[in-house]
Write a protein that binds this DNA or RNA. Sequence first.
DNA 1: TTGTATGCGTTATCAT
DNA 2: ATGATAACGCATACAA
Lengths: 352, 352
Amino acid sequence: MRQKGNVTIYDISKQLKISTATVSRALNNSDRVSQKTRDLVLKTAKELNYQQNSLALALKSGKTNNIGVVVPYINHSFFASVIRGIEEELTPVGYHVIICQTHENVENEAKQIQTLLNTHIDGIFMSVSKTTQDIDHITNILNNNVPLIFFDRKKEITGVSSVTIDDFQGGFMATEHLIKQGCKRIAHLSGDLNLDIYLKRYEGYLDALKAYNIPIDRDLIIEVNSKLESGAVAVQQLYNLPKKIDAIFSSSDYAALGAIQELRAREVKIPDEVCVVGFSNEPFTQYMEMPITSVNQTPVLMGKIAAQVFLEQINEKKRMTVEKKVVLAPELCIRNSSNKSKIETKKGKVRI
Amino acid sequence: MRQKGNVTIYDISKQLKISTATVSRALNNSDRVSQKTRDLVLKTAKELNYQQNSLALALKSGKTNNIGVVVPYINHSFFASVIRGIEEELTPVGYHVIICQTHENVENEAKQIQTLLNTHIDGIFMSVSKTTQDIDHITNILNNNVPLIFFDRKKEITGVSSVTIDDFQGGFMATEHLIKQGCKRIAHLSGDLNLDIYLKRYEGYLDALKAYNIPIDRDLIIEVNSKLESGAVAVQQLYNLPKKIDAIFSSSDYAALGAIQELRAREVKIPDEVCVVGFSNEPFTQYMEMPITSVNQTPVLMGKIAAQVFLEQINEKKRMTVEKKVVLAPELCIRNSSNKSKIETKKGKVRI
DNA sequence: TTGTATGCGTTATCAT
DNA sequence: ATGATAACGCATACAA
């Protein structure tokens, strides 16, 4: 008794007086059906408007054609753009993208992963939460034999592929740019150094200073969060120092903006007296009256590459562990907040 | 032969030497099991780390606990925030959120809906694409007996619930605010008037002018798209008119920003000579050096309400058609671009 | 209170 | 080339 009116291979087999097995074979382009029956099946399938029931297929094959994406917040510009990239790459090949938020909380992260595994997704893309130290819930993904791809924020786990940008290079490029603008006392607003991305940007900053023989002054390095206020507070702190700064490289666009607001309140001329560079290329950086120089992480591309890595991985999966680390080139978008001499956007180099 | 190592109710039944039916009943809190067996089942289920196979359940019940969200672009601030709201409301009750993009293209929209229906989602949330005229692919959702909730951009279809903001009120509030600032020649940058939301904002604008006995000047009404350039072009056009304007109400924040840039290029003082109000409360509006007054659509709330409407709907579903239209109150965020006299944010009223 | 048997829609194995 | 049937894991109508 068909209640939902959905037509199945059984309906086709009944109408054609053949077995469901033959119908299935015809539908799946098996070479073990005569051309004649195949045509007949295809024809009546179209007539009856047959749609394969993906649920039955999923139960049988264990493959749902769903993938999960786990991020801190889905409406943060960066993550939303990565997800866009993933969707655009995976939808055309038949996948559906399930999104989950962790709110930067490990417990949520673990719970989301658990429910994803329970619905038998075919893969998980994730950017770990800031509070994630313990990784049992992540290795659990691998134990379930589900492909895992990190993007941006990752943990070092063997057998897990990742797509990130070269944060070191980003930090280096930003700092080098400031140096070439003639800046000598360059402050750095770093993020939480327990997170790899912020550590790398910080190291890039240090390395650029060394490369140009500029002494490192620990007083100029301040840890902030990604809030406007903390950028403002940092500037206050910097202006309590005896010697003035002439540039700020911030690991966060929001902190950079807060810093700019505080500088302006102190009537400091930007970029003439102080140049400012942010990180992430948040949409607002380009819309300001004084657009903010920032490092573009090319999030949509990052999502697309992550999707491609996933597709490669499930194809190659012949009982062997595949691990691929893609490192995208950051792109320095030079804007008025640091541009004394009208230079153009600089691109870094890709490493794979 | 368990290949995936996944434990099933069969494993439990075998170990306990009882039937799978009893195990199933115990697991589902049926009252037709003795307390003793129930405890035993629950205990061994925990020991064996039993996880219900949601795929089998889905095949059996026809309910997947997945819902689909169809939007033009997932990384546009407004849509991303609505999705966030949906996720936060639905995840706690066991749903997964699948996202799909249409790129403002009807064919994509139809295709996305089709594949969603094919995976048997339990509901669809959507904001229609700008190019959508024909709605057969949308009514098709209802034919499949799948609950549909519109948010923001909707079509008039009986039996379909929707959550929107009161765009008319938003347009009215914005215009009234400008009038109270002393503005008399208020231009309006409208969006595509085929879309309901833009039409309503436009009507709110007209109504406010009438209410305050300000003559309507057709020359001051210009249709733009949501790009910066079109806002700038509109200003050029407005400044070709013999009489000067003293305010702009734009249905788009982007057009408003473009207008501001052009005004500034012409050295027009904002807000003293011209006040500007946008719509959508895009993040950048508050981060500018001169923050832009805008109408907040409270997108996260919109998503949460939409989710709640969905949950009500599937509960009440006793063969009757449920249709609920929720209209949220817009919130005028008054900022420097229109604030000659330091007023605070105004809230509208909710209609249900 | 518990067990047996069936169906959800498909594919795969084995037989014919 | 085609058919019969088991299996995927679960819930439930019906029996006992």
